[in-house]
């Protein structure tokens, strides 16, 4: 994709960059295969009707176009897909998936690309924050002192019957998070950010 020309004027070189899409160098044929494997949906039969974007609550307020991501998958445009910040604007409402006339699940295509981006360490920090909360407490949204007091006031125990009350369940959770390398990924990426 757009590659700068070797002109002496860097500004001109960038402005006049070669903008052809050339499959031989720009397309990664493994991309669609990997996305389909993770998502379990045959993304390559997308015919670009735009029903997905038309159904998307994020489209009217951003540059996020789920149809465009489907197109990129089919063309093998891996780099631009995984590094595009719009990838993280899908609210996973699945409205596109309900309406897709090709019976695809575009939302899961987005999830697959997010998984692939995360493998490379490209993942917003709030996602990893949730991992750490769960690693520490078992809950993505942990209990708080104010809430404990409120619970008691309602006649509930201050800790729910979950890992909150039974921390002995936590080691198993931690083992699972470590087995998939999720905890390690969170630590690594969050550390890089500091």
């Amino acid at each position: 994709m757009a590659s700068a020309k070797a002109y002496k004027d860097a500004g001109l070189s960038a402005r006049l960059a070669d903008r052809y899409y050339r499959p031989a160098q720009d397309s990664d044929p493994t991309f669609v295969r990997d996305v389909e494997k993770i998502s379990g949906t045959v993304a390559h039969i997308c015919y670009q009707c735009g029903t997905c974007t038309g159904s998307c609550p994020s489209a009217p307020r951003s540059s996020y176009r789920i149809r465009n991501f489907m197109r990129r998958v089919n063309l093998g445009l891996k780099e631009i897909s995984l590094t595009d910040p719009d990838l993280w604007l899908c609210t996973t409402c699945y409205t596109c998936s309900d309406r897709c006339p090709r019976d695809l699940i575009p939302t899961d295509v987005i999830m697959a690309m997010r998984n692939m981006a995360a493998l490379r360490g490209i993942v917003p920090k709030n996602f990893l924050g949730t991992v750490n909360f769960i690693y520490q407490t078992g809950h993505g949204v942990p209990n708080s002192d104010a809430n404990r007091a409120a619970r008691v006031k309602l006649g509930l125990e201050s800790e729910p019957e979950t890992t909150g009350k039974y921390p002995e369940y936590l080691p198993a959770i931690r083992k699972i998070l470590e087995a998939y390398g999720t905890k390690q990924l969170a630590d690594k990426v969050l550390a890089e950010g500091q």
């Binding site: 029903t51 974007t53 038309g54 309406r99």
Partner: peptide
């Protein structure tokens, strides 16, 4: 663009929503 949804407005007009692909 294929029509993604149609919404009826109180005056019975219709909002046709799609993507101009």
């Amino acid at each position: 663009g294929r029509v993604a949804q149609i919404q009826e407005l109180p005056n019975k007009n219709l909002n046709v929503i799609a993507e101009d692909t």
